[in-house]
């Protein structure tokens, strides 16, 4: 597990404080200020906030190269498989075409490779965010999939963190309490 993956949400402690922000710029400014203060910071947002990753110290997602890799491997494996099929396993003369008629294999090979790439891409997306069919997952607030960004901050002095978050314009501030998604009632925010 990398630094970036060990999010606050997966390791809840009462020491974490949460502040809610309505807009992207407020969230980014607050995240930057809290990072500058030397605190540990994470964010939960209803939509992707561009420009937030570098502020939180998150690097670019690493799932590009593995996907490209399996696509290239898929090309080789599929073409190799057809070579085996046509030349080694069952050589069959089809209207005088060569046993290994590679131009005729381009389509199935390309499609197979891209299919493997798509499946790996999807599974990496699930894996990196540890997504599994789980209705009991714990969430910060039901509003974090609606209209509020949650900035989750861990500092040595919780009171100072809360004061700072209020100063930075958070609409609500409090200690982080995770709630099961199943028990969230509509319209309520987390108990902050």
């Amino acid at each position: 597990m990398t630094d970036a993956d060990s999010t606050a949400v997966s390791t809840p402690t009462a020491a974490w404080q949460v502040g809610f922000f309505a807009d992207d710029d407020g969230l980014k400014a607050a995240a930057r200020a809290c990072r500058t203060a030397g605190w540990q910071v994470d964010a939960v947002t209803p939509w992707p906030v561009h420009g937030l990753d570098p502020i939180l110290g998150l690097e670019r997602s690493w799932i590009g190269r593995p996907v490209l890799g399996v696509i290239l491997l898929g090309l080789l494996a599929a073409m190799g498989g057809l070579h085996f099929l046509g030349v080694v396993d069952w050589p069959l003369n089809v209207s005088g075409k060569p046993y290994f008629a590679w131009p005729l294999f381009v389509v199935p090979v390309l499609e197979t490779a891209l299919l493997i790439g798509a499946i790996v891409n999807f599974n990496l997306a699930l894996h990196t965010s540890r997504l599994l069919p789980n209705p009991l997952v714990e969430i910060v607030s039901a509003r974090c999939t609606d209209d509020r960004h949650a900035l989750v901050v861990l500092g040595a002095d919780p009171a100072a963190v809360r004061a700072k978050l209020i100063e930075l314009g958070a609409s609500e501030v409090g200690p982080l309490v995770l709630t099961s998604a199943l028990s969230i009632a509509h319209g309520e925010t987390a108990h902050v």
Binding site: A4, D5, T7, V9, D42, A43, V44, T45, P46, V49, L52, D53, L56, L58, L126, T128, S129, R130, L131, L132, P133, N134, P135, V137, I139, V140, C144, T145, A181
Partner: peptide, 8 residues
């Protein structure tokens, strides 16, 4: 799938 929406 238990989507949380963290920055990561």
């Amino acid at each position: 799938m238990g989507w949380k929406g963290t920055a990561s």
